[in-house]
């Protein structure tokens, strides 16, 4: 039967991480930016599960559980912040919120 190497999964994980990074840097919509960090988290989770399988121990899977719970709590905060700012600015554009001069 067919077999497949660990590195194939790692490659997909790395590609997801990279695409998420591109999205974070190019998109200026706050919701989109946070969605892109979630893609990066997905890449990391795939890495961890693949390593967990490779090493035959459940530590990687436990790591992913913690990853998911932190991702959930960060999502709660992110959406809270987005709602707060949207109420005051009526836009989701990250560039428009720069009252501070660099």
């Amino acid at each position: 039967m067919s077999q497949i190497e660990l590195y194939h999964y790692l490659a997909v994980g790395a590609i997801l991480f990279g695409i998420g990074l591109v999205g974070f840097m190019t998109r200026r919509n706050l919701i989109m930016m946070f969605l892109c960090t979630e893609i990066m988290f997905q890449g990391v989770a795939l890495n961890l599960i693949a390593f967990s399988r490779f090493h035959m121990n459940p530590a990687g899977q436990s790591f992913v559980i913690f990853l998911l719970s932190i991702a959930a709590s960060e999502a709660a905060l992110a959406l809270g912040l987005v709602v707060l700012l949207f109420r005051r600015r009526e836009t989701l554009n990250a560039d428009e919120w720069s009252e501070m001069q660099g």
Binding site: F17, G18, I19, L21, V22, M25, R28, N29, M32, T91
Partner: peptide, 29 residues
């Protein structure tokens, strides 16, 4: 809206990600 239709700094970001993915893939294989 406009900020959703235009990517900011697309070249720079893609370049960084390309370097990152490229290096990682070279290392993986």
């Amino acid at each position: 809206p406009d900020y959703d239709r235009k990517a900011s700094e697309p070249f720079f970001s893609v370049l960084i990600a390309f370097l990152l993915i490229g290096t990682t893939l070279q290392v993986l294989f």
